[in-house]
């Protein structure tokens, strides 16, 4: 093999090796950092994990936002029109957090079925519905029309 080719081969092997190593390290370091999305119906049906963080979202139910009088704790309920989940959060909510608005939160579920959010996201455009929430609503609507779930929705 001529020296120029050999040099190129070594470099390519080096690049591929470096790439593989960094991807593997990244996967190992962050294996718990992929947040899956669960809709309120998923959570009510017990599909969501209890031991790790995930994302959940839905539309904030009217008159469900309740603020603590002394701290920055907030409690609210999100719904996909089929099921509801209560969320708690301590801190400042985004400007676009409103009743009737779609939100997505990251956090963990406790044994009482309450979602403790560490981060709440609402989007910049008020006409915009987060895609996960839109899909969850669609899914719930579809299931709401099948006979099995006609009475399970609670409305």
């Amino acid at each position: 093999m001529n020296p120029a080719r050999k040099q190129r081969l070594i470099l390519i092997l080096l690049a591929v090796g470096l790439f593989t190593v960094s991807v593997i390290l990244l996967l190992i370091a962050n294996r718990n950092q992929v947040n899956l999305f669960y809709s309120p119906t998923d959570i009510v049906e017990g599909e969501a994990p209890l031991d790790r963080s995930f994302r959940a979202g839905g539309v904030v139910v009217h008159d469900s936002v309740w603020r603590d009088t002394d701290t920055l704790a907030v409690t609210f309920t999100v719904s996909d029109n089929l099921s509801e989940v209560t969320m708690t959060y301590t801190g400042i909510l985004p400007d676009l957090f409103k009743e009737g608005q779609g939100v997505v939160a990251t956090g963990t579920l406790n044994e009482n079925g309450i979602f403790q959010a560490s981060e709440v996201l609402a989007r910049h455009d008020e006409n915009y519905m987060p895609p996960e929430v839109a899909r969850a609503l669609e899914e719930a609507r579809r299931r709401g029309q099948t006979p099995d779930y006609n009475n399970a929705g609670g409305y």
């Binding site: 960094s22 962050n30 992929v34 899956l36 895609p131």
Partner: peptide
């Protein structure tokens, strides 16, 4: 598959290495 989100730690880690 179920919708996922990949958080900032992924990006931060790779930046801290490279």
């Amino acid at each position: 598959l179920r919708t996922i989100s990949i958080g900032p730690p992924w990006f931060n880690d790779i930046t801290t290495v490279l």
